[in-house]
C-alpha cells in the first residue's frame, strides 16, 4: 500500500529548483545565470534587468508554485472527503463562484479599484467562498455532510453561478470587458507580486500543518464512512475540517490566479499511483508535484506564445490530458 516517499520528495525538490532556474530566464529581457545569482545575492533595484527578475519573474514563479500546490492538496482532500476519485477542488462551485465574483467587478466597476483597493481578487474570493457556503448548506443534512448530496448540490449550484456569469458576460457589451472576463476564467499568473504571495503561502502552510495532525483520520476516511466510524473516527467533524481547509485553499488560489483546471484532479491520482494510498509523505509530495506541474505549464505557456503567454488553464489541459491518458492506459495494461 505504501512506498517510501522521501526519494520522490527529494526528486520533486530538485525538479523544482531546475524549473525555477529555467523559469527565471524566460522573458523579454535577456538574462544570464550570473545575473540571476547577482540579483538574488546583491539585489540592485536600479538595474532594470534585476528589477524584472526579482519583482516580476520570481513572484510569478512562486505564485505558480503555490497555486499548483494549493490546488493539488485541495483536490486530494476533496477526493478523500467524498471518497470519490472524480472529485476536484472545484467540486463545491469555487471556480464558477469565483468567476461570477470577478465578472461582476469587470462588468460593473470598469475602474477595478475602490479607493485604491484592487477589486477582482476580493470579489473572486467572496464569490468562491459564498458559492461554497451555499453548496455546503444544500449538500448537508442536520450538520452532517452527505457526499452524494454534496456532489449534486455542487453541480446544481455551479450551473446556476455559471449561468449568472454568462448573463454578466452578455451584459458586458464592450470587447475589452469580454476579453477580460474570458481570460480571467482561463487563469494566469500575470498579476503576481510580492504583496499577494503571503495569502496563498499562509493558507497552504496552515493547511498542511493541520493536515499533519489529521493524517490518520484522512486515511481512515478512505475506508468508507461505516468502517471509519467503527474504528472511532468522528467522521462528521473530520469532513468539516477537510472541507474548510480545501475551500479556503482553493478560494485563495482562484482569487489570485483564476480557476486553473485539471491540476487538482490529476496530481492526487499520480501521487497515489507513485506512493500508494496511505503514505505519510503523500500530501507533501502532492503539493510539490502540483507546484512543479503549474511551474512547467507556465513556462511552456510563455515559451509558446511570447510575451504575454497562453492562458495557463489552457496549457494544463493541453499537456496534462494526453499525459493523463497515457498513465491511464499504462496502468490498465
Amino acid at each position: 500500500m505504501s512506498r517510501p516517499a522521501l526519494p520522490w520528495i527529494l526528486a520533486c525538490l530538485l525538479l523544482m529548483v531546475v524549473l525555477l532556474a529555467v523559469g527565471l530566464r524566460v522573458g523579454s529581457y535577456e538574462t544570464s545565470y550570473s545575473l540571476i545569482s547577482r540579483a538574488l545575492l546583491h539585489y540592485n533595484p536600479q538595474d532594470a534587468a534585476q528589477l524584472v527578475l526579482i519583482e516580476l519573474r520570481l513572484p510569478r514563479l512562486l505564485l505558480a508554485l503555490l497555486a499548483g500546490a494549493g490546488l493539488a492538496v485541495s483536490g486530494y482532500l476533496m477526493q478523500a472527503m467524498v471518497n470519490n476519485s472524480l472529485a476536484d477542488p472545484y467540486l463545491l462551485g469555487t471556480a464558477s463562484g469565483g468567476a461570477l465574483g470577478a465578472s461582476t467587478v469587470f462588468t460593473f466597476f470598469p475602474a477595478l479599484t475602490i479607493t485604491g483597493l484592487y477589486l477582482p481578487p476580493l470579489a473572486a474570493l467572496l464569490g468562491a467562498l459564498g458559492t461554497t457556503l451555499v453548496v455546503v448548506i444544500v449538500g448537508s443534512r442536520r450538520g452532517r455532510i452527505v457526499p452524494a448530496q454534496l456532489l449534486l448540490a455542487g453541480v446544481a449550484v455551479g450551473s446556476l453561478t455559471t449561468s449568472l456569469g454568462g448573463l454578466l458576460t452578455f451584459l458586458a457589451a464592450t470587447e475589452e470587458k469580454l476579453r477580460t472576463i474570458t481570460f480571467w476564467a482561463l487563469g494566469g499568473f500575470d498579476k503576481a507580486s510580492w504583496a499577494i504571495l503571503p495569502y496563498p503561502a499562509v493558507a497552504l502552510g496552515v493547511g498542511l500543518l493541520l493536515l499533519g495532525f489529521l493524517h490518520n483520520s484522512l486515511n481512515l476516511l478512505l475506508l468508507g464512512e461505516e468502517r471509519a466510524t467503527a474504528l472511532g473516527l468522528p467522521v462528521a467533524r473530520t469532513r468539516w475540517l477537510l472541507l474548510l481547509i480545501a475551500s479556503g485553499l482553493t478560494g485563495c488560489v482562484v482569487a489570485l490566479a483564476g480557476p486553473i483546471g485539471f491540476v487538482g484532479l490529476v496530481v492526487p491520482h499520480i501521487t497515489r499511483w507513485l506512493l500508494g494510498t496511505v503514505s505519510r509523505g503523500n500530501l507533501v509530495f502532492c503539493a510539490l508535484l502540483g507546484g512543479n506541474f503549474l511551474l512547467l505549464c507556465d513556462l511552456l505557456a510563455r515559451l509558446l506564445y511570447p510575451p504575454a503567454g497562453l492562458p495557463v488553464g489552457l496549457v494544463t489541459a493541453l499537456f496534462g490530458v494526453p499525459f493523463f491518458v497515457y498513465l491511464l492506459r499504462k496502468q490498465g495494461s
Partner: peptide
Amino acid sequence: YPALTREYILK
C-alpha cells in the same frame, strides 16, 4: 491590440 506583460513594457 496585443496583450503585453509588465516586463515587455519595462523593456
